[in-house]
Write a protein that binds this DNA or RNA. Sequence first.
DNA 1: ATCACTATTTATAAAAA
DNA 2: TTTTTTATAAATAGTGA
Lengths: 118, 118
Amino acid sequence: MARGKVQMRRIENTTSQQVTFSKRWTGLLKKVYELSVLGNAKVAVIIFSQKGRLHEFSSNSKIRKTIDRYCRSTNDAATYQANMEQYILEAIRTMSWILLNRRNPTDGGSARAKSEQH
Amino acid sequence: MARGKVQMRRIENTTSQQVTFSKRWTGLLKKVYELSVLGNAKVAVIIFSQKGRLHEFSSNSKIRKTIDRYCRSTNDAATYQANMEQYILEAIRTMSWILLNRRNPTDGGSARAKSEQH
DNA sequence: ATCACTATTTATAAAAA
DNA sequence: TTTTTTATAAATAGTGA
């Protein structure tokens, strides 16, 4: 906008791409903030710029809350559960190995102590 | 904007709040899309409107990818890990109980078979 | 990266359909 | 709820510090 229309394609020039990204990110943040206030809504925005830098905004102080809520409400929960299962499976395998290699099942092993630090 | 400045506070009138939300969400989507194209960035936006309705957008077809990347890269990973630990801890307790109550440690138990279905 | 300027393009509030 | 209209408010591209 301004001084000529913008073509909707990737900006090749690195410098101007970064300038545009910075300006538009600022503008976007304002829009998101306004929407969350006016509409009394919970919002989370996550952006990875081309350089891999993380930008984020959340109307909650905890962006995780919105994300978690998302994870629970979307069909993509299948992916979420699949990831979770991998973690759990790994933990179970570790625990199994520990238990199977212990002499006395009743004394507290280090693995157990560690897991209960939580 | 237009026909008078907007006060930055929650719109009490339900109808006009919804109209404003709908319009601004549309505008926001466009902005986010433009930013992702111009800046060649990966973007995810999640909004829960007051009614609890989920609105989302992602420049990836899989919004989960951006979210997962977020989870791994942010400091809030502490929260993420804490949640994960709870799941793992529960799994370990279950597995421990199963293992501790088995007669023969070398035959395949049902719990193990189940966990390896993944 | 950010800030200022500013001509233009966009977004949108209000009203009505 | 969604769309159209349209007067205005906002956002921003290009430029230079």
